[in-house]
Design a protein around this nucleic acid. Structure first.
Lengths: 212, 212, 212, 212
DNA sequence: TATGAATGAGAGTTCATTCAT
DNA sequence: AATGAATGAACTCTCATTCAT
């Protein structure tokens, strides 16, 4: 009997999460109302409040797991013994694959409430996670620049690398092509993008006397 | 008299458009209320409905001119006699400045979301414009790559350049910083981004025997 | 077993009453939720409905005991052999302490508002109690006025004494300070209030030839 | 035409105020909903927000005029050349008359949002006014105590005087008797109450060496 | 006996929009 | 041409209460 209760609750909670994820993805966080979510989840709008304190919290519950998954994947890449360039490339490609395979939630995860990627203040757990991701990218970047490159330069290069990843994802976010189709068609281009940046960074740093 | 009336009406209409454009750009479509627009336009909120059937329509009337302005600016850059690299850089930076100064407007105009599915044309209109812009970028790109670079390669490089611009804009779309603050803080980084790509492209093409 | 069940049920019921009494007293009837009561009572909120049809009924079950307790305390004071002034002071201070420690409960029980018009008895019940209390106060008062003071005079003095008590309670009914804080800060003032009245009464009666 | 607009607006506003005053008096501030007020005022609930920022503000608009009226009456008494005792008595009696003639709004005016009568922080305009009233009472009190009475003592005596007034009003707040009937029947008792307090205060202060 | 799950009515408030002038 | 007055639908969120077990 307890079990029945539990499973029912879990089912409802899952329904809510699924409905919210769909709706947020379809029409954006702000445009979706709690009542709509409830309607699609097949429960009353007040039931949502049994499982989530408020709308924002609901969003976070949806966004967190994928982000954590991504973090762990990236951490795995950083932990292996590959060459720095291979690591960086792995990070970038994984990042892209991730974002494109969570396309629908992308907006919600990356744009709601985020102000700067390199922001310090970790208001929300989500922002903290985003920053952690950025930190991983920076770590990978460090190994690919000339030794002695200043921190400021490193930060700038990481930012640029981030722009690139962000831009790729943004460009194909609404594409009807599947992740695999996309990667088959454009994977080499993406790879070239990161390689070109790396080459350019090193050239600029060398020429500039690798200062800060 | 008739004329005076007409001109007064036109003035009011222009005021409304100007006010709405400013406010939408400053704070986003949804966040702005009709009463605020009216206040800034110096008329009553009901007057807006004399000229525009609703808020959405008002937005559409606002969206086109800036886009055309952008296209003309970019065309102007392509038409001048500056060095290819300067042209390319000008195109990229102008594009970024444009998008960041029309930030929230940008959101609405450029992000073809699911809620627009039932609309007549905006998706196509936008894609047409995007393609036009992309063509200009490609044209500028051509002058910056080694002579004899194949079309496929050129296309790939242009795409990558586009990703970068797109990524920069996407990253700072929701930033609270003004355009000027943003450019002061990050302008050099943006410039470096495009330079690094160009350097990288040339290196890759050279090494690869500039094939198609 | 039957007995165990019964005693368990009774215990739960008592817990609920105790919890509700505390919470109503602490924060007022309206501000307290059934879930809070249940939490403090150590049962689920639905269990409350096993014992009380609704929140209002629960309140009614809570109201009487403290009032009876007060009456008995006052009777005890009247029954002891202390000096009349001590008795009177005891009555007044006890009354104040009672009302201020049942502050929000007091609100509901004592303030016969318009919303109670359709109830059966509370107005009368309350008035009965008020009168009883008033009678006790008058009894204590009698011992503190010059012998031979007329009944009318006695009545007036008692009334005035009652106003004072009532006014003190009313003034601090909504104070966020606890009973103890209040008594620490203002206890001497309250005491002075009753003393001053007593002194004044006697002076007035003496001067006026202690007539009726 | 402008006039018609104006008068309509004024009528609506008056209706809202009247409806809110009635309802607040009947059932208390918290228990009344904006929609109920609107219904009784014969307008939509949103119309209320055209005239009052929120519910609290509406309450203040209702409470302020009577309070200001009272203030002016009291100020008039303080300004005349009567003996201090006469002034104090006038203040107290006026206060009582006022409260009993505004019986229905009494609760709302004096109890909503008020925490301490002698509070300093003037969060709301209403609290400021209440404090001003208290200040007037204190000023009148000062003239009736022995010269050299400390401020603390003065404050305590004023508080006590206030309790008395408050208690009288509270006691007869729900009485069916009219103001005049009440004053005819109990006016002398009220007068005695204040006199007795004054006599008592002076006695206590003398005996205690009129310290602080 | 007792509970976790779920609900409906309703709170204050906002805003695009319409009506009457 | 223009406006002040007014509205209704919708928002997030709360809570006493009921249902199913």
């Amino acid at each position: 009997m307890q079990k029945q209760h539990q499973s029912r609750a879990e089912r409802t909670k899952r329904n809510i999460i699924a409905a919210a994820a769909e709706l947020f993805a379809e029409r954006g966080f702000e445009a979706v109302t709690m009542r709509e979510i409830a309607a699609r989840a097949g429960c009353s709008h007040t039931a949502i409040y049994l499982y989530f304190t408020d709308k924002e919290t609901l969003l976070q519950h949806i966004s967190m797991p994928p982000l954590q998954e991504l973090r762990e994947e990236l951490a795995g890449i950083l932990a292996n013994d590959a060459a720095p360039e291979a690591q960086l490339n792995g990070i970038c490609m994984t990042w892209i694959r991730f974002c494109l395979s969570h396309r629908n939630l992308y907006d919600v995860i990356f744009n709601v409430g985020a102000e700067r990627v390199d922001e310090k203040d970790p208001k929300l757990e989500m922002n903290r996670l985003r920053n952690e991701l950025f930190g991983m990218l920076m770590q990978a970047m460090r190994g690919c620049l000339p030794p002695g490159t200043g921190e400021e330069r490193l930060l700038a290069c990481t930012r640029i690398m981030f722009y690139m990843a962000y831009g790729i994802v943004g460009t194909y976010r609404h594409s009807p092509e599947s992740l695999d189709e996309l990667m088959a068609r454009l994977g080499p281009t993406f790879r070239d993008a990161f390689r070109a940046l790396l080459i350019g960074f090193n050239a600029i740093i060398e020429e500039g006397g690798n200062g800060g």
